[in-house]
């Protein structure tokens, strides 16, 4: 599909996503909303597959078949009680995918490393940082809810300072990627963000995990928006930003519904250690 038609189809898909979120906000329209969202997503994928001069079409379709073969049966067969951790897992792979897309764009010769605009490199750094955090953080929330590990807050000795250190290292590597883009620095950024994601979620207690999943969901939305900017794709920017904004609001509403202030959820374990150390 060429230029204007493709853009129009992406616009329709974007509208479908808006209607999907709208539909999901009321019990009577929720299932219809999901259906509309799925149709929009299918339309967007078909348009992407008909992009002119697309290479490796066979491999791409093969990868989509593999992904469907993994995702669909898992979603169909999972026990009702295991659904939240499955959402976390799906969110994690989405964030990971966004980080991988950004790294492909970064590695593209002559595009990213030498000629890329500052804004592109900044968006790539942001995507790898936040996508990596979302990926590893979601895996830990999955492990907690699946009871593969303890659901109680895990507090490492001096954990707070290690976490802050990794956060600072991640942000610094993302910032330094703009003036000094190199594959080594990008790999470092990816590794640091993965570790930070783990450290970020470890101190969260079992009951607060759904709130953190929602927050990581919003993070992934923003990474999708940032990679959309890098690729020059309006649909990704619109869909990612919608999810990022609504996910942030939803996180706050979930925290309020549970009677937990958001900062208490995220930093509760830190404060607990502090008071325990004092007491």
């Amino acid at each position: 599909m060429t230029g204007a038609w493709a853009d129009t189809a992406y616009l329709i898909a974007g509208v479908c996503f808006i209607l999907a979120l709208k539909g999901l906000s009321a019990p009577r329209t929720a299932r219809l909303g999901t259906l509309i969202g799925a149709c929009g997503a299918a339309l967007a994928v078909i348009v992407a597959l008909t992009t002119p001069h697309l290479k490796h079409l066979g491999l791409i379709i093969g990868a989509i078949v593999v992904g469907t073969a993994i995702g669909l049966p898992t979603a169909r067969q999972v026990r009702m009680t295991a659904m939240p951790q499955l959402v976390a897992l799906f969110n994690g792979v989405g964030g990971g995918a966004a980080a991988l897309v950004a790294s492909v764009e970064f590695l593209r010769p002559g595009n990213a490393i030498s000629d890329a605009a500052t804004a592109d490199l900044a968006a790539i750094g942001f995507t790898i940082l936040v996508g990596g955090v979302s990926f590893s953080g979601s895996l830990i929330t999955f492990a907690k809810l699946q009871e593969l590990m303890t659901t109680r807050p895990v507090v490492l000795p001096a954990g707070r300072w290690i976490t802050i250190g990794f956060a600072a290292a991640g942000v610094l590597s993302a910032v330094f990627l703009v003036p000094w883009p190199s594959t080594a620095l990008m790999t470092l950024l990816a590794l640091v963000s993965l570790v930070f994601g783990v450290l970020f979620v470890l101190p969260v207690g079992g009951a607060d995990v759904p709130i953190v999943i929602s927050l990581l969901n919003a993070f992934t939305g923003l990474t999708v928006a940032a990679s959309g900017y890098v690729l020059g794709n309006t649909l990704l920017v619109i869909a990612g930003t919608l999810v990022g904004a609504s996910g942030t609001l939803l996180t706050r509403m979930m925290a309020a519904a549970m009677g937990r202030p958001l900062t208490g959820t995220l930093f509760g374990a830190f404060t607990a250690t502090a008071s325990a150390a004092v007491g």
Binding site: G37, T51, H56, L59, V87, A97, G221, L242
Partner: peptide
């Protein structure tokens, strides 16, 4: 549902890979 919607990164992945 919002989580499924950000799966649209698939479009970006197809374009980047292709």
């Amino acid at each position: 549902g919002a989580n499924a919607i950000h799966g649209v990164i698939l479009v970006g992945a197809i374009i980047a890979t292709g």
